[in-house]
Nucleic acid binder design. Structure first.
Lengths: 348, 348
DNA sequence: CTGAAAGCGCTTACAG
DNA sequence: CTGAAAGCGCTTACAG
């Protein structure tokens, strides 16, 4: 029903009895154009609210000025905050973004990546799904000349720019904070063991335990997926064991919510029975019951940087072979959930 | 640096020594094509992983299969949940979405709407900003033949399909719940008075008070914007008055967070000193301290419906003059924040 | 059954 | 300084 007509160069040319070429040149501010002609063209273009058809431009220069973004889930604080950063910088640079979701499924990620590619995006920013182990679909893009930048859940198999945080240190510090509060039986609830972030956070966790001469119990390291029921069962089982942990380091926010739910159901108090500390970027964390100790990431800045690096790859004239991995810092925000005396500093 | 070559019809035609037309027809499954030729084309296309260039297609049929979505903020639970619904259905129908943000600014909304239009989107889904009073920029799109569907913050000035909830009833019920708990001095903290949702929620609020023979105090109806500091001051002032309200109905989640912050700062307990009830769709609401009574909306379904209606407008052959406004139901989830005895049902 | 031609809206090397 | 022509990748009415 899109019956109306968008103004084209041809319309302007006809009204002014000029050729399309001349109009095009005048609009581009070409110097070798009669000043008078130029003025007329500009005036009429303004009057008719002419705006060039990006589709036609794309067809010519094989650039769409569109960046694809692949995340697990849009309706996820972490993702939407990074996306906000991406949008912010992309927009400034004249790029628009198409967001796609993997819903934590490998198959969906592959399919949707192909879909984005078939849309002729100029580049892709991706954080891989919890299931993803094979990244051929990303190499495929790169081989096609579509640059890819990874963030958060990156992969060693792909040579490209990456934006991450110091997951090792984030986990190490959070674990130390728990230990310093006197918790000695600490579990770690995390995601797929095949993801680099999982491995780094886990190393940070175990190194903190070892540094304090505490044993590492493998049965207290839970690798979960996002099937809520299965995960709830795993967590329930952990807390129902004869010897249960008195603290937990959680690798992602969504798991901390599941954990909170299970603890309520089991009538275990946080932090009196079990202390919690979690990687999380929810602005509501301090308002939770109890306020949740969080390892925070500079989400907005990460998004901005990721696009910046991507646009660098897209617009670079020569082939880039030197890729960098930018590692940003996490910040530990300590709240009631990991404090021995259930009273938060200065709050409540 | 996008130097690699995407496979085109021409490549296939050359390899098979056929014309581009024939290849095109074979790929489209045209009947009047030699079965053998057809088979060859299909096979080679498969082998070369040919995928048609959507840019070229768009240029021909003036359809981009792209839908624009304009929201206040991506990193906002309500918005991202609706967007998830939009993505879900749009994807099924072969459409992709470009998301744009107004950041609650009228100027930004107008600019970004024009930007989307210049991208030749096939249609727009929008919830207007808190500042928006004039909707000419939307009428402009419609006049250009680009259909628009509104949701949540809709406007009477635009004749089109709309997806909303029963804001009046949502506010009415939430207010009644507070009254039934014995709260009689209830304030309403809400957004721009020029928005329809504000007006409807306000009517629901005042009608509930009147139904229970309670007075409506205009000084207890706060219209806020998203300038955090100004809003905090307004709210602080409300609670510092000699006679302060003992309960508040909040119109949007973000304001409820600001309100919680101010109450903490003033050392007022929820719900003992002040009860709270808020329109909110945060999955974390039940985990807040205290758990927040929420008027919830069917966000995902709203998004799905909005695209469905939009695609109907886009693909309709004849001009549609009959527009519908679909009104969905809200659900009141009562938690501690609005319960007299600070003990939630079955929880904690 | 197949191909050459025109056209979608634009840019740009080539003439003049 | 200006215009005609070619071309980006595709579709489709028109010939044959």
């Amino acid at each position: 029903m899109n019956n109306q007509h968008q103004i084209t160069l041809k319309d302007i040319a006809q009204q002014l009895k000029l050729s399309v070429s001349t109009v095009s040149r005048a609009l581009k501010g070409s110097t070798d154009i009669n000043a008078e002609t130029s003025k007329q063209v500009l005036a009429l273009a303004e009057e008719l609210k002419y705006s060039p058809n990006p589709i036609a431009l794309s067809l010519k220069d094989k650039k769409t000025k569109v960046i694809g973004v692949m995340v697990q889930e849009i309706a996820n604080n972490y993702c939407s905050a990074v996306i906000a950063g991406i949008e912010n910088f992309a927009c400034k640079m004249g790029y628009q973004t198409i967001i796609s979701q993997s819903h934590e499924k490998y198959e969906t990620e592959v399919q949707n990546t192909r879909l984005l590619a078939s849309r002729r995006i100029d580049g892709l920013i991706i954080s891989i799904s919890n299931e993803t182990r094979n990244t051929d679909h990303l190499q495929e893009l790169i081989d096609k000349g579509i640059p890819v930048v990874m963030f958060d859940r990156v992969s060693n198999a792909i040579a490209t720019h990456k934006v991450i945080v110091d997951d090792y240190r984030g986990a190490f510090e959070a674990t130390c904070q728990l230990i310093e509060q006197g918790y000695e039986n600490i579990a770690h609830i995390t995601i797929s063991k095949h993801l680099l972030i999982t491995q780094n956070r886990l190393r940070g966790f175990t190194d903190a335990l070892r540094t304090h001469q505490l044993p590492v119990r493998s049965e207290w390291i839970l690798h979960c997926d996002f099937n809520t029921e299965a995960t709830e069962n795993k967590i329930r089982h952990l807390f129902c064991s004869t010897k249960r942990p008195d603290a937990v380091l959680l690798s992602v926010e969504r798991l901390s919510i599941t954990c909170l739910k299970v603890l309520r159901e089991l009538e275990l108090q946080v932090p009196d029975d079990v202390a919690l500390s979690s990687f999380s970027d929810n602005p509501l964390s301090p308002f939770l019951n109890p306020a949740l100790t969080s390892v925070c990431q500079p989400t907005f800045a990460m998004g901005q940087l990721a696009v910046e690096l991507l646009i660098e790859l897209i617009e670079s004239k020569q082939i880039i072979k030197e890729y960098k991995t930018v590692q940003m810092k996490t910040t530990l925000h300590v709240h009631e959930s990991s404090l021995r005396k259930a009273v938060a500093v200065g709050e409540k």
